[in-house]
């Protein structure tokens, strides 16, 4: 077996590219969040660092780097450091199976703009996302602070509860598409309508659950400042705090990418194949289309955050268990019935 060095090089480049892009997008999401919050409250938002405040994320990052790093004396030192690292690592791992575009053909080589097209892509994402809770739990527990512990317990139960509804809403989509590979799901949408038209309820459930999974408002109970003094990262300072905050934005980016790919056609756009453009150009345009969709969803996340107040914890649990899961089950049942009907007729 000869090792295809170009293949490895290509993948390494792609992985670093995807990582760099997700970090940059996460960086500018912090800027975007503050800008969106500003304009929605009739303010301007950051506008001092650079043109329109565009250097603000760099300033924030620099600030976090130079802050004093405090590790509480009574904390479990190893786990205290492991927590944010795990949160960041898990957040970055998800991007591997998302198809960022179709294939490019450069010098006779076909390069797929997806790090790994594994046939169980969605399950992989579920596996990684379900690990995301460890970062929060370990950090919260290792801080040896009751507020942190309460917040991490909240986070864990919230994430586990909403993972169920999320999985059930995806099962309906999987029954319809018949595949677990995200790339194939996108390719199917390229030649027909977007899945959101077939699965409006499923998309809604997925959307709500991804808000809960990312700990975003209205489900940001793990970070409820007024009850928990800041949440699971209460004892964290410096870049470790930065990692937690950053992981949240990367998660937002990834779930936006996932929602775009699963329900909104991913890198495909209408009349993609009838424009008569060269394949490479179409691929690039497709990637641009994907990023437009992602940016819309990121904006949506922020838009919701600055509109809807936080749920109470019992309301959150009731919504998850009493409404979302039955709805997802019903959606699954209806989809199953339709799939069965269509396969027999």
């Amino acid at each position: 077996m000869t090792i295809d060095w170009f293949f490895i090089l290509e993948k390494i480049l792609l992985i670093s590219g995807v990582l760099a892009i997700s970090l940059i997008v996460a960086m500018y999401s912090t800027w975007g969040e503050r800008k969106v919050a500003g304009v929605m409250q009739d303010r301007i938002g950051p506008n001092r660092a650079g043109f329109m405040g565009l250097l603000q994320p760099l300033a924030d990052g620099g600030k976090l780097f130079f802050k004093e790093e405090i590790i509480p004396g009574s904390s479990n030192r190893f786990l205290f450091i492991l927590g944010p690292s795990l949160a960041m690592m898990v957040a970055c791992m998800t991007s591997a199976v998302i198809p960022w575009g179709d294939t490019l053909t450069i010098a006779g080589r076909t390069i797929s703009l997806q790090v790994a097209d594994i046939n169980i892509g969605i399950l992989y994402i579920f596996g990684v996302v379900s690990l995301g809770v460890y970062g929060i739990m370990l950090g919260g527990w290792a801080s040896n602070n009751k507020y942190s512990l309460l917040a991490s317990v909240r986070a864990a139960s919230q994430i586990i509860s909403y993972e169920l509804a999320m999985g059930l809403s995806l099962i309906a989509l999987l029954m319809m598409t018949g595949t677990l590979s995200i790339k194939e799901i996108v390719e199917q949408q390229r030649h027909s309508l977007w899945n959101v038209l077939y699965q409006p309820l499923g998309f809604l459930i997925f959307l709500v659950c991804s808000f809960a999974e990312c700990n975003r408002t209205p489900f940001d109970l793990p970070e409820a400042e007024n009850e928990l003094n800041g949440g699971y990262h209460l004892e964290y300072s410096s870049m470790k705090l930065g990692f937690y905050l950053f992981a949240e934005y990367i998660n937002m980016f990834i779930s936006s990418a996932l929602m775009s790919s699963l329900y909104f056609g991913g890198y495909s756009f209408p009349y993609m194949d009838s424009l008569g453009l060269s394949p490479n150009l179409t691929t690039i345009l497709g990637t641009v289309a994907l990023f437009v969709k992602i940016i819309f969803f990121l904006f949506f996340f922020m838009w919701v955050r600055w509109t809807i107040p936080r749920f109470r914890y019992d309301q959150l649990m009731r919504l998850g268990w009493n409404i979302m899961i039955p709805l997802a089950l019903a959606n699954m049942l209806i989809t199953g019935a339709i799939v069965l009907y269509r396969s027999t007729h």
Binding site: V39, M40, Q41, D42, R43, I44, W303, W306, T307
Partner: peptide
Amino acid sequence: TLKHIFQKKE
């Protein structure tokens, strides 16, 4: 909130 994006900034 969307409407406020386009309103005059204070």
